[in-house]
Design a protein around this nucleic acid. Structure first.
Length: 549
RNA sequence: GCACCCGUAGCUCAGUUGGAUAGAGCGUUGGCUUGCGGAGCCAAAGGUCGUAGGUUCGAAUCCUGUCGGGUGCACCA
């Protein structure tokens, strides 16, 4: 609408950006006038004034007031009618008709789940929810390394523990201790590999046997029985965590073993065509030609590295889904690695490479910047994080139930912009005051409690008083926020908004009685709209909104 | 050495396709309580936006240098 006026007046069709300014300035604001200063050759105040008066004349029904302020902002205050109409808007489903793959979580069988896995799982879940909210056909993928050196290390230590290749010995390990037991074996195998040359050689050999077992589709040999049994234990363990977290379930688990052959074959094939090259007995891709670095895809033992398997994975995704977009979420240490892999694929299969987007996040640290490592063994496991939230709740006056604990952890991990490291503080996450999941749950429950005491029908939103208008204004921003969060794939935008919304409500609530007031009907409508948005927003984050707490 | 990410209040973070007095929470200090869930509200103190330049009418935001932290740079994942 402003666009048209600008074109009429100045013949310029720049994009008009409407922002939500501080409430004192109005409902919308734009700085076009300042942007036009140069091309038009008039001072911003004059330009703004022309646009302002034209705009006001054009839309008398929608615009109550406009003014030019500061260096040349045009501030627009909507009429009550227009403001209320904004409430009917729904998120724009901008991804409708697209098929989008989201790969995240990616735990490796035979290795323990540490706090980082919890983080990446929750980030992935919230991003996938956004994509789904955008209307896309969303396919959740989980890729895991069931072959590779780590599996070799674990298998070596497992066999040693069992006193040989004796699968029946596995039955002696109680079900509840299996995840921990597997984690300990990995740590043992890893230390052995690093500390002792002869152990290292043995492990390399075990690693080869694991690959061979897949090629031969061996399920019978004692070695294979141990492998498949422990692999299953790992997957069971992952399933337990996902269930506990109440994250959306994955559409497909793709173990590395499933894509190894395709990846290996492709690399060999493209070696002939010059995409990959031989170097010191290994097959590499020379990313330096593209400002990246060199990486080994097939090692000199002839075994595929992670790189080759990722090639297989990408091609598998492309063949099986023909996606519009493929999103991969990992820790940021894989950032440059992934660029090399994707660049190599681009050389012979450009389409899927171009449609692949890598989102990276930072690492989880505990209060005081303590980092966790899975090499040393002193790791914080995923379940321990949840446990710590629960414990922090018990020592406070909260006494949280499961819903609250999950809300605490999920919100703590999604409220920050994806990218940097995050510091997890259990006490802050479970706190009922401040910017936390439980605070928002409480805010919701309190609003529902008010509504449960109401006996009148909703009123029309008209002749709004200032507090009511502020609430309507804030509620009306909901769809804009969702759209932006979907577009940018940034769940934290929703967190920020919901928190602001709850604060706005608390201000309203402080001054305006609902039940029994002469404006009860109108205010009931406001509270209802507020509670519904809060609930929807929390659900988008995978957080429940209980009626009572 | 090269590359990528990060550096905003004591702490944890928003704000970064350039725009109005840089905003929240926690913590600190003071006020509000006969209340629909006070798990709240109001207010104060607290900032050379790492630092030095540059571009611009205008820079936390863009460019360059520099310092500090993290990560990655060949047979690990």
């Amino acid at each position: 609408k402003i666009q048209v006026i600008v074109i009429d007046l100045f013949g310029s069709n720049i994009d008009i950006e409407l922002t939500r300014p501080d409430e004192q300035f109005g409902d919308f604001s734009t700085n076009v006038a300042m942007q036009l200063t140069k091309s038009v050759g008039q001072n911003p105040g004059e330009i703004a004034e022309k646009i302002r008066s034209a705009l006001k004349a054009e839309l008398p029904e929608q615009i109550a007031n406009t003014e030019v302020a500061g260096p040349g902002f045009i501030n627009i205050t909507l009429t009550e009618l227009a403001l209320v109409e904004l409430l009917d808007a729904t998120p724009s489903q901008s991804l409708k008709g697209k098929k989008i793959l989201v790969e995240y979580s990616d735990p490796n069988p035979f290795k323990p789940l540490h706090a980082g896995h919890l983080y990446t799982t929750l980030v992935g879940d919230s991003v996938a929810r956004l994509i789904q909210a955008g209307g896309a056909e969303t396919i959740r993928l989980n890729y895991g390394g069931d072959v590779g050196l780590h599996a070799g290390k674990s298998m070596w230590a497992i066999i040693k523990f069992l006193g040989g290749e004796k699968p029946e010995e596995l039955n002696k390990i109680p079900e509840s201790e299996r995840p921990k037991w597997l984690g300990e074996r990995y740590v043992e195998g890893n230390s052995a590999y690093e500390d002792d040359e002869s152990f290292k050689a043995e492990i390399v050999d075990v690693n080869k046997r694991v690959y061979r077992l897949h090629e031969d589709q061996d399920k019978e040999s004692p070695f294979a029985q141990i492998y498949w049994q422990c692999r299953k234990w790992s997957y069971d363990y992952f399933a337990t965590l996902y269930k506990e977290l109440e994250v959306e379930s994955f559409d497909r688990f793709i173990p590395e073993s499933e894509v190894t052959k395709l990846g290996t074959d492709t690399v060999h094939e493209q070696l002939q065509k010059g995409v990959y090259e031989e170097s010191d007995g290994a097959i590499i891709f020379d990313g330096e030609k593209y400002g990246l670095h060199k990486r080994v895809f097939i090692n000199s033992e002839g075994l595929p590295t992670y790189e080759a398997k990722d090639v297989g994975l990408s091609l598998t995704k492309w063949q099986d889904y023909h996606f519009d977009e493929s999103i991969i979420i990992t820790a940021n240490e894989q950032d440059q690695y992934m660029q090399v892999v994707v660049k190599s694929i681009e050389q012979f299969e450009p389409e899927p490479a171009k449609r692949t987007k890598h989102i990276t996040h930072g690492t989880v640290k505990l209060q005081g910047g303590v980092k966790m490592s899975s090499r040393k063994g002193n790791i914080v496991t995923a379940l321990e994080i949840i446990e710590s939230a629960s414990q922090a709740g018990e020592t406070s006056d909260t006494n949280p139930n499961e819903e609250t604990i999950l809300a605490a952890v999920k919100y703590a991990f999604t409220k920050n912009r994806i990218g940097g490291d995050i510091v997890y503080d259990p006490e802050e996450s479970i706190a009922l005051e401040g910017n936390s999941g439980p605070y928002l749950q409480y805010a919701h429950a309190r609003a529902r409690s008010i509504l449960s005491k109401i006996n009148v029908d909703d009123g029309e939103l008209s002749d709004l008083q200032p507090g009511e208008r502020s609430m309507v204004r804030k509620i009306g921003e909901y769809t804009e926020v969702i759209d932006k969060a979907v577009q940018e794939l940034m769940p934290h935008l929703i967190c920020t908004y919901l928190y602001e919304l709850a604060q706005e409500f608390n201000r309203f609530y402080e001054k305006n009685r609902v039940v029994g007031d002469e404006r009860e009907a109108v205010r009931t409508k406001v509270v209802k709209l507020y509670a519904d948005r809060l609930k929807d927003g929390l659900n988008l984050l995978g957080i429940t909104a209980p009626e009572k707490m």
